[in-house]
Design a protein around this nucleic acid. Sequence first.
DNA 1: ATGCCTGCCAACGGCAGA
Length: 259
Amino acid sequence: MRIATWNINSITARLPRLLAWLESSGTDVVCLQELKCSAEAFPAEALRELGYEAAVHGTGRWNGVAVLSRVGLSEVVTGLPGGPTFDGLQEPRAVAATCGGVRVWSVYVPNGREVGHPHFAYKLAWLEALRKAAEPGAAGALPFAVLGDYNVAPTDDDVWDISLFDGATHVTAAEREALSALRELGLADVVPRPLKYDRPFTYWDYRELGFPKNKGMRIDLVYGNAPFTAAVRDSYVDREERKGKGASDHAPVIVDLDV
DNA sequence: ATGCCTGCCAACGGCAGA
C-alpha cells in the first residue's frame, strides 16, 4: 500500500495537480491538509472518477482536512475528540478513517503564529488533545498512524538554518516536548528519504527563492505505531510536486507499506 | 533550471501561512 500526506494549500487551486499526481503516483491513501474548502464545495465527484472515496472535514476559507482512499474507507471520525477551541470555534483540523486495514488520522496542527500568542497556547493544547485521542490507536494491534502538517520541526536539523529560528515557533522546547509525548505513546517518527540534498524537508516558503535555495523545513510528519512502522518498506519526500507553477508550498511525503 | 509568494473573501486591501 502506498500512503501519503500532503498539505495542498487549497484543494480548489490545486485540483488539476492533485488529480494528475493521484494518477501518476499510484497513491492508495492520501491525508490532505489545508483544503481551504467547505465539505459542500469539496470536489468529491472528480476524485470518485479516479476511484477515490473521501472523508472530508472542512468549513470554508481556513484549515480543512481529508482522507482519500481507493482501498476502502470506514469508521470516519471528523474533528479532534476533546480538541480545544480558538476564538470560540472548533476548527476543522483532524479527520480519521480506516483504509485497507490501516487506521489513519489526517491532522493540521495549529501554526502558533508567535511564541506567547494565544494561538501558541492553542497549538500546545491541540497537541495535548491529539496525544489523548491517539493513545488507543498507538497501543493497538492494527497499523495506526497520525499523518499531517504538525507545524513543528522535530530537531534542529529539520530546518535549513537553526540560527535563524531564535525565538521562533516550530522549534521551541515546548512544541518538541509535545512531539516527544506522542512518541512516548509508542508512535515513531517515520523519517522520509530526501530525493535531493541531505535533509528531507517537506515545506519551503514561496518567498525569496525558498525552494531553489533549499531553505526548507521538515514539518509534515508521519507518526506510526509499531505494527505500522514494522510494515514500512520505504518513505520519501516527493519534491517533484513542489516544482513549477501552481505548486503547494508543501511537498507530499510518501510511505510504502507491506500491507 | 527548482526561480524572486499564494489563496481567499467580509474582495481592489487584509489576513493567514511558518
